[in-house]
């Protein structure tokens, strides 16, 4: 995982609530392995017409949004499936952060583990951001993970603070993953396991 750097990039509005994982990447691409470029499958059925040509009406195909790296989405973004491919598709396309009032829980976890920053902001703030990036197509949102701030794209340059758990922040900023961290505790896991495997009351196995 690459370390997460501050972002100053074009923001793309996607103002549909309950935008589900199947719209992010249809199930017919789930057999692809990670060494594929999943960016070409992102929003596949919305982004392309049946004949394979681009749908000019879909937001990321509009010239002003083509360089988008920040997605501003609606409530319950990426609800549905556990497919990590949804994160891979957004990330490979070039998105580095998604801002929404709420996320599907599984997607949220998957995003953090792949260097895609999911940012939860209050609904009214997200509505303002959506209005701003729609009013000024191609305008930039700035995200500073270290400072935990999002800066609005309009002339007000309002800065919004967001919260993130310190562990995920540390992993994202330093590009490290959780597995190495957990393997550092492997002896304790195995100790618990020896007790648990004897079908003892689990409470007696917690040291």
């Amino acid at each position: 995982m690459k370390p997460f750097r501050p972002i100053d990039a074009v923001a793309v509005p996607l103002a549909q609530p309950n935008f589900d994982t199947d719209q992010i990447i249809p199930s017919r691409y789930l057999q692809k392995l990670r060494d594929n470029d999943f960016g070409i499958y992102l929003f596949r059925d919305l982004r392309f017409r049946k004949d394979g040509s681009e749908n000019p009406d879909f937001v990321i195909n509009k010239p002003a949004y083509r360089q988008g790296k920040v997605l501003v989405a609606e409530r319950n973004f990426a609800c549905g499936s556990s497919r990590e491919h949804a994160v891979w598709a957004l990330y490979d396309y070039g998105f580095q952060a998604v801002i929404a009032p709420s996320f599907g829980d599984i997607f949220f976890n998957n995003a953090l583990k792949n260097g895609l920053l999911p940012i939860v902001l209050p609904y009214s703030t997200v509505v303002d951001l959506l209005a701003a990036v729609e009013a000024l197509p191609g305008s930039h949102i700035r995200i500073d993970l270290k400072a935990q701030t999002v800066t609005a794209p309009d002339e007000t340059e309002t800065t919004h603070a967001f919260s993130i758990d310190p562990f995920s922040k540390h992993c994202l900023l330093n590009g490290i993953d959780e597995l190495d961290y957990t393997l550092g505790y492997f002896d304790r896991i195995k100790e618990f396991e020896r007790c648990h495997n004897k079908q003892a009351d689990i409470r007696d196995c917690l040291s």
Binding site: S82, R83, E84, V87, I106, N109, N110, K113, N114, D177, E178, L179, T182
Partner: peptide, 10 residues
């Protein structure tokens, strides 16, 4: 509960 691929590996 359901988990993603990175969590499955974990």
């Amino acid at each position: 509960f359901g988990i993603g691929a990175t969590e499955v590996a974990h």
